[in-house]
């Protein structure tokens, strides 16, 4: 396992060109091309703002000013997370040709999926910045330095889960179908469309068990709420947990590796 893990940096070039290929291929043939990376989160935000600010506003809406900005802080990273997991659950099967016919390190495929979606996330950031400026968000440099840390933690967490999901889906194809629903549930179990502090205390305890809760809160505290970034302990704990999860995920992936060529 450690041997294979050490090989991983050697595939930098391959990962790079595969990510570039993913991005190029995705919008090939569409009129707006890369602009969809901007428009997609924007449209999604419009839908959610419409529903949660006008159709069925939560009781505490008045206590969350600039609701659209609040929503966007959680929604943009969530889109990255969700797309990464759903796409990578199927990636080994759809990339079966490579695994079966070419000597190819399979773990590259889920990693590329997460990275390609990270790039989409980064493309969405200009819109977020525009929002921040428009709503005159209370940004502080001391908080903003945490932003890359949050992104990094989310990256490690996403890669770990992507490795596990992609490896298991080879054996249990049902995961693919279940996952879409699990992700919807997960979305609402994460304080993205509502404010964490307004959740009932009993429920808050469960929310704390959800790793993405801490990512969402971190994004919100850094970008939306005034005051210093108080959630950093949780974030670092989650970071440590994600690294441990990554080691476990890689171990599991490595154990199942030999079965991929025969099963996909």
């Amino acid at each position: 396992m450690l041997n294979n893990l050490r090989q991983l940096p050697r595939y930098r070039g391959l990962i790079q060109s595969l990510v570039a290929r993913e991005l190029k291929a995705r919008y090939r043939g569409s009129v707006l091309g890369f602009f969809w990376s901007f428009f997609n989160p924007l449209l999604l935000l419009l839908v959610y703002t419409f529903v949660f600010a006008y159709v069925m506003p939560p009781a505490q809406l008045s206590e969350i000013p600039n609701f659209a900005l609040f929503l966007f802080c959680g929604l943009l990273p969530w889109t990255w997370f969700q797309a990464s997991l759903i796409e990578s659950s199927n990636i080994l099967i759809s990339g079966g040709n490579l695994i079966k016919k070419v000597m190819f390190p399979a773990e590259i495929l889920p990693i590329v999926t997460v990275l390609a979606n990270l790039v989409h996330f980064l493309f969405g950031l200009p819109i977020l910045i525009a929002f921040l400026i428009y709503f005159d968000a209370p940004l502080q440099l001391s908080e903003l330095v945490w932003f890359p840390v949050v992104v990094l933690v989310q990256l490690v967490l996403s890669v770990s889960l992507a490795l596990i999901l992609s490896a298991l889906t080879v054996h249990f194809r049902d995961i693919k179908d279940i996952l879409a629903n699990v992700m919807t549930l997960w979305f609402f179990a994460t304080p993205i469309v509502y404010y964490w502090k307004f959740a009932p205390v009993q429920i808050r305890r469960f929310l704390d068990l959800n790793p993405f809760t801490h990512l969402a809160i971190s994004y919100q505290e850094i970008l939306y709420f005034p005051g210093s970034f108080g959630h950093w302990k949780w974030l670092l704990a989650l970071g440590a947990g994600s690294v441990a999860l990554f080691l476990f995920a890689y171990f599991l992936f490595d154990r199942l590796r030999d079965s991929f060529a025969e099963e996909v």
């Binding site: 290929r21 190029k24 090939r28 040709n97 490579l98 079966k100 016919k101 070419v102 190819f104």
Partner: peptide, 10 residues
């Protein structure tokens, strides 16, 4: 397998 991994769109 020749061309395994060719991406059709690019």
């Amino acid at each position: 397998e020749l061309g395994a991994g060719f991406h059709p769109e690019i």
